[in-house]
């Protein structure tokens, strides 16, 4: 069974339709790349999955259970939305690290706040907090940042900041990790270190959705690719197939523009 099922998502901003009839599935352990030109709706789609935008139509199911259905108000309660968001992790284009916290605090803050809701929090407070700290440190180590744990975001390079942001998202153990153009705000020489981390996550079978402009990366790392244009899915399929042999004319045009650059 697919871990994520998106059915007929539609989204309007005022009179502009930004997403139209978006449907796709994602299997556990697979990486999905969403490609397309700017303004094609890729980011909005990702924001809908994280409930940063509310779709006007359609439904989202995780592991077979409907977590959002535009037709069913019972699935849209603000109080439950917060918990449902935790199915998804999100890595932003502009990192959005909290500037007043160190790298480690950025990674552990939300986990510590969530731990307070645990029934046994009061009795085992010190143990729980120590575990969270250890896990945060281990995550930073996985990102190659163990020596940067006590640095503040402004003391880190863009690539390091983005890796902290990835660790922060992983700390909550999301079912699906979403990346919104994770390297677009980075200098070319810093792009590699972030892509390397994402690649290693793919090797460890992390379920991921990656909105990206890095075609070669999408082709190598993703299992599936969705090409979007004008708010609709033009083509979807196995990554190598879509990128090497696109069936649709629009996909071909888009990819050939990349080949030229």
């Amino acid at each position: 069974m697919a871990i994520l099922e998106v059915r007929n998502i539609e989204k309007h901003f005022g009179a502009t339709r930004v997403l139209e009839d978006i449907s796709f599935e994602l299997e556990r352990g697979q990486a999905l790349a969403i490609i397309g030109s700017s303004g094609s709706g890729k980011t909005t789609l990702l924001r809908c999955l994280n409930f940063l935008e509310t779709p006007d139509q359609g439904s989202i199911s995780v592991e077979g259970s409907v977590i959002f259905d535009a037709a069913d108000p019972a699935t849209q309660k603000e109080s439950e939305l917060r918990k449902k968001r935790l199915h998804f992790g999100m890595v932003f284009q502009s990192f959005n690290l909290f500037p007043q916290y160190t790298a480690l605090e950025n990674v552990t803050l939300a986990v510590k706040l969530l731990a307070k809701e645990r029934q046994d929090y009061k009795q085992n407070k010190n143990r729980i907090l120590a575990e969270i700290e250890d896990e945060g440190k281990a995550l930073l180590e996985r990102m190659g940042l163990s020596d940067r744990a006590d640095h503040y975001p402004h003391q880190l390079s863009g690539g390091q900041q983005q890796r902290v942001a990835i660790a922060r998202a992983l700390a909550l153990h999301p079912d699906i990790l979403c990346f919104d153009e994770p390297t677009s705000a980075l200098d070319p020489e810093l792009t590699g270190e972030v892509l390397k981390v994402i690649r290693s996550l793919a090797d460890q079978k992390t379920t991921m959705i990656i909105v990206t402009h890095e075609m070669a990366f999408a082709r190598d790392v993703a299992d599936q690719v969705i090409f979007m244009d004008g708010g609709v899915i033009v083509e979807q399929g196995p990554a190598k197939e879509v990128i090497d042999n696109p069936k649709q004319e629009r996909t071909r045009q888009f990819l050939s523009r990349y080949a030229e650059n």
Partner: peptide, 27 residues
Amino acid sequence: VPVGQREAGQVLGMTKTQIFFKVTLLQ
């Protein structure tokens, strides 16, 4: 305070109150 700060808090499952006191206030 950039919108992204609040959004980062939201996707991390923080409540509105937590976002205000732990993220927005000091900034």
